[in-house]
Amino acid sequence: MIHLRYEVDGSDFVSCGKASEDVKRTLKNIGIPSEIIRKIAIAMYEGEVNMVIHANGGLAEVEILPDRITIVLTDTGKGIPDIPKAMEEGFSTATEAIRELGFGAGMGLPNMKNYSDDLKVESRVGEGTKVTMSFIL
């Protein structure tokens, strides 16, 4: 079993994606098929971006088992008041400044749901959000 842990810096949009990049590299090194790696990398990257643009950063933890990979993203940001609404394609509270950077299309959570085998979003307003994604190998 491999366990990876990353602090995601919420004030640094430039280095956002580094954790996902490292996970991608690790999965490649241990010989996971590239189509599966791509799905995992995209889903984790969307989650990492969300922690940076919506929650001031957080913690990303990845557990790699022989038959599955689990990614847990935890933050202490503002939380999500209406999770079903946030899951809708196109729903976004991102600012115009974020949109100018190419994010805030409201496709992040839908992409994460599509690419993972299981997605769980738990959130409390004012306390934070925990996103758990599983991928079956």
Binding site: G17, L101, G102, G104, M107
Partner: peptide, 27 residues
Amino acid sequence: MMSDVLAFVKDQGMLLTGLTNPQVVRT
């Protein structure tokens, strides 16, 4: 919009974009 790119997973060999920030490269 990078999430629009990320929504389509298959065989995109090339991306044309008007954005130049580092997240374009990460995407």
